[in-house]
Amino acid sequence: MRISLQAFVVLWGALVFVGCNSSKKEAEPLETAKEEPLNIIFMIGDGMGVPQVSSAYYFGDSLPNFSRFKQIGFHQTSATDYTITDSAAGATAFSTGEKTYNRAIGVSVDSLPQETILERLQGEGYQTGLISLTTITHATPASFYAHVPDRDMHEEIASQLVESNVDFFAGGGKKFFNQRTDGKNLFEELVDKNYHLDTLELSETIKGKKNAYVLADDGIPSKIDGRGDYLSEATTMALNYFDQREEPFFMMVEGSYIDWGGHAENAEMMISEVADFDKTLGVVLDYVEAHPNTLLVVTADHETGGVSIGKHYEVDKSTGKKKEVPEKVTVYFNSNQHSGELIPVFAKGKGAENFQGIYENNEIYHKMINAINQAK
């Protein structure tokens, strides 16, 4: 059968139209599919440098969870006024993306409030959480929600926490809430703001409420003083709580007493705190592996103690001389203060590759924000 050129063109156009529409229809699910928002878990081992991480390998009974990371970098820690940073300036650099002076909490070098990553993500619909072993008003956790010129303004910091709308927080510091110089009882204000509050134990979270656990007048006890598994249990509770809702979350978890072990030049304390942090790290890594839409970043604000791990000597009873024990090592402290060491950064999950290299501490904020933007 012969057809005219004009009829052929019309027929060909119709076939192309049908074919194009068919292809477009098949592609629609891919075009409209959306990535899940990125969860961020930020773990800070306060005072944890390379030697502290190394202790987990020399004194532990099994391979540390640190070995589960493939993406590793280093950051430089200096504050704007001191080469050796404190925890306040270090955490503020993490939380705001801007370096500042020692003792500053969530403020710039001019003492002006700076929006933190926690506050920014709250504005984008994120759930938020904070877990610490110290008072929840201490420098590291405070730097994520408070804005004061000096870290010792604990009562003002506690007042700002009440107004911060953090969904889940756990730590110590009762005295800054209910034994205040202004006579206020901030625990009553938390309850009025629909918080499930517990000042005795890590009781079960309540869905539909914010949850607050303030469990000691000052800090939670150290591991060698009988703390138990508080850090891993609180972290597990928070993850389960966040999973009850569809919104993404940002959570900061601090292993606070690695730093205190360095200040006290107490090797047993430092080793046990690193081991406890590594145990909690295992909980979080399991979560990240089961939830691909999550980024875990692990680092420290600074190193404490100028720690090194070296040869172990014992006195030979027959000669009275020191003799090296080949199969053992010893923790040595160079000082009881912070040092200027580069600090390791471990990352796992979506966007982890961005944390390789050597960079300033405030860049961690920008890398986390970039990872969130890339996941959108």
Score class of each variant (00 low, 15 high):
K174Y: 12
K174W: 09
K175Y: 13
K175E: 15
F176Q: 11
F176Y: 15
F177E: 01
N178E: 15
N178T: 14
N178Q: 15
Q179Y: 05
T181W: 12
D182R: 09
G183P: 09
N185S: 05
N185M: 04
L186K: 07
F187W: 12
F187S: 13
F187A: 07
E189G: 13
L190Y: 04
V191L: 01
D192W: 11
D192P: 05
D192I: 10
H196A: 03
H196T: 01
H196R: 04
L197D: 00
L197R: 01
D198W: 02
D198T: 04
D198E: 13
D198M: 05
T199G: 08
T199A: 10
L200C: 02
L200Q: 02
E201M: 03
L202V: 02
S203R: 03
S203Y: 03
E204W: 02
E204Q: 03
T205V: 01
I206G: 06
K207T: 11
K207D: 14
K207M: 11
G208Q: 06
K209D: 02
K210T: 06
K210D: 04
A212L: 02
Y213R: 01
V214Q: 09
V214E: 04
A216D: 07
A216S: 11
D218R: 14
I220A: 14
I220M: 15
I220G: 12
S222V: 06
K223W: 09
K223L: 10
K223Y: 07
G226E: 06
R227H: 05
G228P: 03
D229E: 12
D229Y: 12
L231D: 13
E233G: 13
T235W: 00
T235L: 04
T236W: 00
M237K: 02
A238F: 00
L239K: 05
F242W: 07
F242K: 08
F242V: 08
Q244Y: 11
Q244C: 07
R245G: 09
E247H: 09
P248M: 06
P248E: 08
P248H: 08
P248R: 08
F249I: 08
F250M: 07
M251F: 05
